[in-house]
Amino acid sequence: MSFFEHYLPNVVPIWNGDGGFVQAIWQTLYMTVVTMIVSAILGLILGVLLVLWDDHGLLQNRVAYFILDKIVNIFRAIPFIILLAVMYPVTHAIVGTGIGATAALVPLIAGTAPFFARQVQNALVTVDPGVIEAAEAMGISPMGIVFRVYLREGLGELVRVTVLTVISVVGLTAMAGAVGGGGLGNMAIAMGYQRFQNDVVWVATILILVMVFIFQFVGDIITRKLQH
């Protein structure tokens, strides 16, 4: 341990235990994964609805599109650090507390689901409209077209925007420290930056980068599997 103790004097004592690095890694993973699962489901539904309700969509609906489009824009426009505060009453109502990693999930999802919905919309509009038309001509129902054409033909793009969103969520979790969510971002700021412990900042940064690289790597493998 002398090597680590020598070069990372402030990291080693807070590696394990309450408020330590290991816990921070788990907090970041927990917030990222849960946020991503919930946002993926919500974002996929909202993104598909945006595509269907669009002027060129299968279930064109101007009013519904207008409303959903504006909601998505508003949530994406609010800076996340402010969203944390704005969402506080909602968080409190849902989770029972406004503090901690679980409480941070509410604003994380509120910030991520609309972002992912827009990404899904952008991914699905890349599906060739001619293929959609062909499916319509074959008498496939709108639901069938969503599942068998949009989600199938758009899968490669969906994987790409999912990785993009995961990376953005990792970024957002760094701000969750503001509501006591913990995580590596909080570690870097509260334990590293504010206490002038540069080794803590560096290790936290590297761990976040490793996480991002792993997500990116997995995404690339899936994308390659999907290509012919």
Partner: peptide
């Protein structure tokens, strides 16, 4: 209408095949 469309085939200038299949 969807049932009726199955009785009317259609082919297109750009083929409109699904590339993932």
């Amino acid at each position: 209408l969807r049932t009726e469309r199955k009785r009317i085939g259609m082919i297109f200038q750009h083929f409109n095949l699904m590339n993932s299949l």
